[in-house]
């Protein structure tokens, strides 16, 4: 079997205003560096407002993953965006619980549920007329 030289750390899918980020490699420091760069490129290109992290592709994450999520959160929050997650297995759940990330990133059962919630969410600041 031929080895893929430039294996992506995550898969990305743009769904309206939502960018779905699905890590496919164990989310450690090594992979986090990649996801951070790839995700920022995708956000820039697709102009995503909200982010949805789909963890169904991985069973391991360490504190590096927390950094990636926090960093992306800071990116979208100032434009009135939100983040959410789905596909959380037991291993990832422990990390997310321990780090308190659920406070800023609500958890949903699947993509459909999460996308519906993100779509409904009132965007803070969206109603304020520009230039006052």
């Amino acid at each position: 079997m031929e080895r893929q030289e430039t294996k992506k750390a995550a898969q990305y899918e743009q769904c309206g205003p939502v960018l779905i980020i699905m890590p496919v490699q164990e989310l450690d420091h090594c992979c986090a560096v990649q996801v951070r760069q790839e995700a920022d490129e995708q956000i820039e290109r697709g102009g995503a407002l909200h982010l949805l992290f789909d963890f169904s592709g991985i069973h391991f994450m360490d504190s590096s993953g927390i950094g990636v999520i926090m960093g992306r959160y800071k990116k979208v929050i100032f434009q009135g965006g939100n983040i959410a997650c789905c596909g959380v297995g037991a291993e990832i759940d422990r990390i997310l619980t321990l780090s308190g990330l659920y406070r800023i990133m609500p958890r949903f059962g699947d993509r459909k549920e999460a996308l519906a919630a993100l779509g409904k969410k009132r965007m803070p600041g969206a109603d304020i007329p520009s230039g006052n």
Binding site: A32, R36, D62, S63, S64, I66, G67, V68, M70, G71, I95, L98, S99
Partner: peptide, 14 residues
């Protein structure tokens, strides 16, 4: 600057 969360030792402890 590297988006480190500062949770490394906390996770080891936990």
């Amino acid at each position: 600057d590297m988006e480190r969360s500062g949770m490394g030792f906390a996770f080891m402890e936990a």
